[in-house]
Nucleic acid binder design. Structure first.
Lengths: 126, 126
DNA sequence: ATAGGTGCAAATGTTTTGCTGTCAA
DNA sequence: TTGACAGCAAAACATTTGCACCTAT
């Protein structure tokens, strides 16, 4: 049975309040501000555990590997090729594509993800 | 100016004919059959170079990191959560979502990718 | 009391890089 | 001839894991 450790709570809290989709290393640095002797291994272990219970997710799509999102709801991401920032894409979701793909491939679909790459407004104005 | 090395040709050829979306290590093993003393560093260097000129692409979307595709045309992938195989999703493309997302985010979109996760027909029948 | 969790450090796996020699143009 | 590229090995990262100790329940 799972216990609530202080470390896990802090890690989850960091993810919930950090909007920049931090890497494991970055979560570690933030968590260290609260628990100075927390270890990187613990961060990895908890990120994995929190993913497995669906409380956080790991972002991925072309070059965004190893960054995490404390928002567990399905949503898409967009990455700036110039400055590297990752933002959430709001209000766009394709619920029906899973059915379509199931029909075409014969797979039972359990999830999908979508990622965009581009240049953000700030970088465009430079 | 770029030269056509034998190694690069073999690596590209492996990718073109391998439909299983191989990892770098796997490309290395295949290439070794043709050039026994090819080095892993060369494989990585060429995979990167071939990506940068758009001849191959690296697949990514939740758990498919580090696998490559010799088909340079935009298409989506689906991964079986049980046996791990990655297949191409044929005949489904969302050209218009880039415009939509550009409008919503203010980004100039240069690319997008879509990945599905599920259980393949073979695994379902076990 | 005890199972789950932690910190630490070593191990692992993957990718990159420096260097020297080689080869395509 | 020469600059791009290869092979090799070391380095650099990122992530996982074994172990002994700690702590919620």
């Amino acid at each position: 049975m799972r216990r609530k450790s202080r470390q896990r709570k802090v890690i989850l809290d960091v993810l919930k309040r950090t909007k920049t989709h931090p890497s494991a290393e970055c979560v570690y640095r933030e968590a260290k501000k609260v628990i100075p002797n927390i270890s990187l291994g613990t961060v990895y272990r908890n990120l994995k555990l929190l993913q497995s219970v669906g409380e956080v997710s790991e972002i991925s799509c072309e070059g965004d590997e190893g960054r995490f999102d404390g928002n567990p709801h399905l949503h898409y991401h967009i990455t700036c090729r110039q400055c590297g920032k990752i933002k959430d894409v709001e209000d766009i979701l394709f619920y029906n594509i899973e059915k379509k793909v199931a029909a075409v491939t014969g797979f039972k679909i359990v999830n999908h993800c979508v990622g965009f790459q581009g240049i953000c407004p700030e970088c465009l104005n430079k």
